[in-house]
Design a protein around this nucleic acid. Structure first.
Lengths: 211, 211
DNA sequence: ATAAAAATCACTGTTTTCAGGGATAGCAAA
DNA sequence: TTTGCTATCCCTGAAAACAGTGATTTTTAT
């Protein structure tokens, strides 16, 4: 029944992880590894001449951003199911991935069983998350989502200086602007990241890739 | 020649990675996987009643810090070779790991071949690094480099709460200790990370893998 | 057993942040 | 041309952080 096996493509920049996925999935009877890749470009060209049912996709890749890659796959091959598998536990990223057509999101610490059952669920057309991801998604205050904050140039500048440990007075001196202006930017940063103080601000900004 | 095989213990919080390592190493004739673990505690108790030659050790673990775990292993079982395998590409961490007795440091993007040859090299008593790590170590400004801070359990706890945006008063309430105590920990954290304020503290702590 | 390290608590005074108000000017898109 | 966004500037008062110093108790390791 070769023709009935689920054809899986693996993409992860860590060869070791690819091996692990292959090992776990190869023992599942109805699954077949159709291709393994450590970058996005190779996967895309592979998909042009080989049919696969599902792509297990890492978000952190050397060449293409996993989110964009997901979008490309779904645009060019809408029938392919994409399941994200990443270390990134950032709520905004998870949502972005889903927005771009992924059928689910797994953290890399999934167990073998959870991995297999998640693939099966995704193949049935359902959206699937690993346990940890569910918690992240249903985290408190799901209103006013912290989807990646949109910062102005000046705000990014100020944010960088805050992260370096500069005080408002110092930043005002460095940028040749009044301390009140810096305080404004500070307030806006706290608000945009929904943070109570700089500690949380820096954590959020780091998680969202600003630092 | 069972008795001559190299006995390997694997520690990584990601089951998939453990599978991958196992798959890669199991095809090497003279190697044998003696144990697989996803946390440090289990490994330590295992070592008490089973002899192994080398431990492949992830730095990010759910219970114990990989650096401390390395130290424990080398203290209690000096003959065991420890080879660190991590995603963390921070120079200070690498140096700390080596200081605590590791025989080398590999990034998780090592190739299969590099992994096997590195293990062999480490077993011969040499220090070994993956290609990327070599570059990090020989990077500019090797003077005044912030080595990883050594934090106590309580300090890590407080640090985590600070990163969540909790104030001193809140932390004192959460941990059932006086606000003065929290202030002490705070001061020590700032000092250990050589930070001027929480903003810098959080950045440093993140860079060094504490958050 | 004892020394070292960690965790706890205490006080004072200064600096900085944060929350809450506003205001003005420039610029670009609708 | 109005509307919205960015960047700038201003003030106040309360809350929090930070610096400096010191001490006691508890745990851990040798």
């Amino acid at each position: 029944m070769l023709q009935n096996k689920t054809r899986i493509a693996l993409v992860d920049d860590h060869p070791i992880v690819v091996e692990g996925l292959e090992k776990v999935l190869s023992v599942v009877k109805h699954m077949k590894i159709a291709g393994r890749f450590t970058n996005g470009k190779d996967l895309l060209s592979f998909l042009n001449y080989t049919a696969v049912d599902i792509v297990l996709l890492d978000i952190t890749l050397p060449d293409i951003n996993g989110i964009d890659l997901c979008k490309s796959i779904k645009t060019n091959f809408p029938q392919i199911v994409v399941l994200a598998l990443s270390n990134l536990s950032n709520r905004g990223i998870i949502i972005d991935v889903l927005k771009n057509g992924a059928s689910g999101y797994l953290l890399k610490n999934v167990s073998r069983d959870e991995l297999v059952s998640s693939i099966n669920t995704a193949l049935r057309g359902e959206i699937v998350f690993s346990q940890d991801v569910k918690e992240i998604i249903s985290s408190p205050q799901l209103t006013n989502f912290p989807e990646t904050a949109r910062l102005t140039t000046r705000e990014k500048e100020v944010l960088g200086l805050i992260a370096l440990g500069k005080t408002t007075a110092e930043i005002s001196g460095l940028l040749y602007i009044s301390k009140f202006t810096v305080e404004s930017h500070r307030k806006n940063l706290l608000q945009k990241f929904n943070a109570r103080n700089v500690a949380e601000l820096i954590r959020m900004a780091t998680q969202q890739g600003f630092l």
